[in-house]
Write a protein that binds this DNA or RNA. Sequence first.
DNA 1: CGGCATCCTTTGTGATACTG
DNA 2: CAGTATCACAAAGGATGCCG
Lengths: 127, 127
Amino acid sequence: MPDTASRTERLTIDVRHREVLAQVLDKWSLSVLNELCERPCRFNALRRAVPEVTQKSLTATLRKLERNGIVERVLLATRPVAVEYRITPLGKTLRGPVDVLLGWSDRYLPEIERARDRFDAPSDGDR
Amino acid sequence: MPDTASRTERLTIDVRHREVLAQVLDKWSLSVLNELCERPCRFNALRRAVPEVTQKSLTATLRKLERNGIVERVLLATRPVAVEYRITPLGKTLRGPVDVLLGWSDRYLPEIERARDRFDAPSDGDR
DNA sequence: CGGCATCCTTTGTGATACTG
DNA sequence: CAGTATCACAAAGGATGCCG
């Protein structure tokens, strides 16, 4: 397995990296990102795309992503008014990492669930 | 689902994917994983490697990773007693994704911090 | 439509103390 | 050394209602 360059040494993770990653990878951010990578979305369209998220959490997620420069909030001058969220160029750089992550979880989910079952049912099998 | 190469279609993220990713990518997991990918570690060695984590959170993180089959807890039969944590084969499959993530945050951190400054100081710069 | 404000419950986290 | 137990508090999350 070839290293990404001549980097055999691991990166250290400081508090700022942790903060960024925590915000970008939080519970709902991935889903939102996943959606916005496809197309710009209005608020309620996002809610429909991610039905489990509450309005509050979605708002918070979007603010966080906006603050970090990952998504952009665009006011549309339509009849009543509308808001559209778009991925920014910076946000697009996240698509690769996000894809890798989602691919990983999709690929290994069954194996992880088996590991959990093994871990969670010790009294039942060890007796 | 033969979707191995065609990434024109996005994966959908259901609650189970979100759960797995939330656990694997949580605040401390990445640091722990980053460390254990390098070498097996004893508990206090991990504390030293990640000084900001409290004992409690480290314990919780390790349990979570263990439950998901990402790390393995090995009891060493030394004089007093010792515990070593190792990455599992399943855990090793995470190294790629984790690397990509850390690389991303390392690469774009400055840009993100600029975006934050812009977002946080609107009244100061816009008047 | 796209929020914000409020309330309230749950979960997370740090600090501290104690045990095999 | 490697935890568990406990308390106290902060942050997250859902539910509901109101507003421009």
